[in-house]
Design a protein around this nucleic acid. Sequence first.
RNA 1: CGCGGGGUGGAGCAGUCUGGUAGCUCGUCGGGCUCAUAACCCGGAGGUCAAAGGUUCGAAUCCUUUCCCCGCAC
Length: 305
Amino acid sequence: MRLIYFGTGTFALPTLQSLAEHTVLVVTQPDRPSGRGLRLAPSPVKTLAQSLELPVASPERSRAPEFLELLQSQEADALVVASYGQILSTAVLESARCGGINLHGSILPRYRGAAPIQRAILEGETQTGITVMQMDKGMDTGDIISIERLPIGADETYGELQDRLAELAASMALTWLPKIVAGDYPRTVQVNAHMTLAGKVEKEEAELKWDGSAEIEYRRFRAFTPTPGPFMKTNQGLLRLHSLRMSDLNGAPGTVLSVNPLTLALDSGALQFLELQPEGKKRMSGRDFANGARLKVGMSLSENQ
RNA sequence: CGCGGGGUGGAGCAGUCUGGUAGCUCGUCGGGCUCAUAACCCGGAGGUCAAAGGUUCGAAUCCUUUCCCCGCAC
């Protein structure tokens, strides 16, 4: 089997690992300036590919003619795509004998798009899964080859769930690609009427609000942990939130209901702030934060108080 | 050189502007109270104030340099 692997994010890592011996070329997004100091940083997939000593290509535009030639020259059996980050043109997909095979982090046709895992958690879903799919020119609209499901834990974060899904994707890829290359696999057309969209995540969505319900804001916390990173504006400054739990307590929004564990009331319900991080500080327990900020039960962290 | 915050007993912080023998909450150790306790009371230990140099009678605090940590933006 000769495979070309398209991937960028951490979701794509386990699958690349499991298919490495069949992979003749890894395609990933170009290095981007990132982090403090704006130094150029390689994608997670590029880093792994290099340690596996696989050839790497990072075209700015995957549809560029010279890149298309490179793809065609590989005479690959299939393109395997997982969290690549660019739309692949029909010409690109047709550069391999069996076209593009996508590993998508949802039960298609639900949650088509860029952020299926985050959106599923945010919507309060209790299960999700991986769909192996024959790509076509649309966004996650191709024929379904296989679906496997996973329950979503009540306290599970996006990062944790993504890790489990990524492992599932890797094992499914290992199972199905030989069959696909051999031409022996089922194809089921998606029922478009059941589709939903899972749009890209914006940073502002990760802000928890005092006037939200604890249940929904907790889902928000889970959906955007660890990236882009949930946060909350308080009269103590911006707090990044690392670990929360639901609380049974109630009170006026923003009120400190308990100092150990640090429990703050929202509009409906309350949340325990187990680990957080003030701007410019290291992450710390809610208890330590309460100590340093001299918080007492009854005080408010709501901005305008 | 993208913008910014910070390094003070084990933890989180105050004190730095207006130099003058280091303070708060928590933890820890010992004792007490209690049926009991993560609760309460009493007492104790524990700090080269990131590092180096400089100014000064005197520096956590002022000046210079270095190291380390972190947030935002990307």
